[in-house]
Design a protein around this nucleic acid. Structure first.
Lengths: 150, 150
DNA sequence: GACATAGTAGACCTAACGAGTCTATATTTA
DNA sequence: TAAATATAGACTCGTTAGGTCTACTATGTC
């Protein structure tokens, strides 16, 4: 039960984008360097974020990525589900009886269901803007002054 | 970010024990049969539960397991941490700078810290007794009438 | 139009982990 | 003594996370 690097890197990338002057196109390698993400690794993650409608890509020379929405409307839950999978705490909540034959009479199930809601609600209440606001990472500290998007 | 079978099986085992008449010793294979847990698999899980002080073991013929505490004082969080690992949502919360060099200035971190608290608090508020009360699983429905421990 | 510079798509690798199975040993009851 | 039980640990197998790389396509610029 922990959040993997894909989500971590996706949050870094998105909050980095959010911290750029409006409309700035940022390349994958730029993000990787500034946010300490392994080379090339972001290519798969950004693909998912594009497919999920969270960022827009710009192919070709001088290409790169920009946010596809306001930073205030991209939640951590969105990001998690876009780059990983639906937020599900216990497999039975997704698979039902094919996970466990006692599913219909199981009391444990509702506990996990509630726990999942509690967590999902929290993560749906936090946006990239909240993170970018107090970003503080390397790039932000050394380079351009803070300038918000949205 | 999901809860694995170890925790699922541990909760089944413990709530099964909680549903027995007070002081009843139940063998591993008995639990496995009644709670649909793969043969032998519980041997490792019960070992952890014994080591964690949640159950007591009785070696030898007619041996088996009993709860070591009242069902009302065994929480889901206890179980999770006993059979799996400390409840940590993001590795950086445990490993700090050895996970990520930006740790000291990272805003993302506090988000996961909060999310973790929210989840942990919820799981610490649910006990085995809550589950056993409305157990409903196979064994309970077919066999002895409900009788609570603690 | 040519070329450099991007993203796109996907193959590929490796180590670790989850889940499950089994066995030899120590311990206890009958 | 014999049967039944937990204990400890080895073992397998498939999947996944994390990471790396390359061929291809699209686009801006000279």
């Amino acid at each position: 039960m922990n959040v993997g690097r894909r989500v971590d890197y996706a949050v870094r990338a998105l909050s980095y984008l959010a911290g750029q002057p409006d409309g700035t196109i940022v390349s994958r390698s730029d993000i990787e360097k500034n946010q300490d993400v392994p080379s090339f690794y972001l290519s798969k993650i950004m693909k998912d974020l594009v497919a999920g409608g969270l960022v827009e890509s710009h192919i070709g020379s001088k290409g790169g990525f920009t946010l596809a929405k306001k930073a205030t409307s991209i939640t951590i839950k969105d990001i998690y589900e876009t780059v990983e999978r639906p937020l599900v705490l216990m497999e039975c909540l997704e698979q039902g009886a094919s996970y466990c034959s006692f599913c219909t009479v199981c009391k444990q199930k509702s506990i996990w269901e509630e726990a999942q809601s509690v967590l999902a609600n929290f993560l749906a209440g936090v946006t990239i803007a909240d993170i970018a606001d107090r970003q503080g990472m390397k790039g932000r500290m050394l380079k351009t002054p803070m300038q918000r998007v949205g």
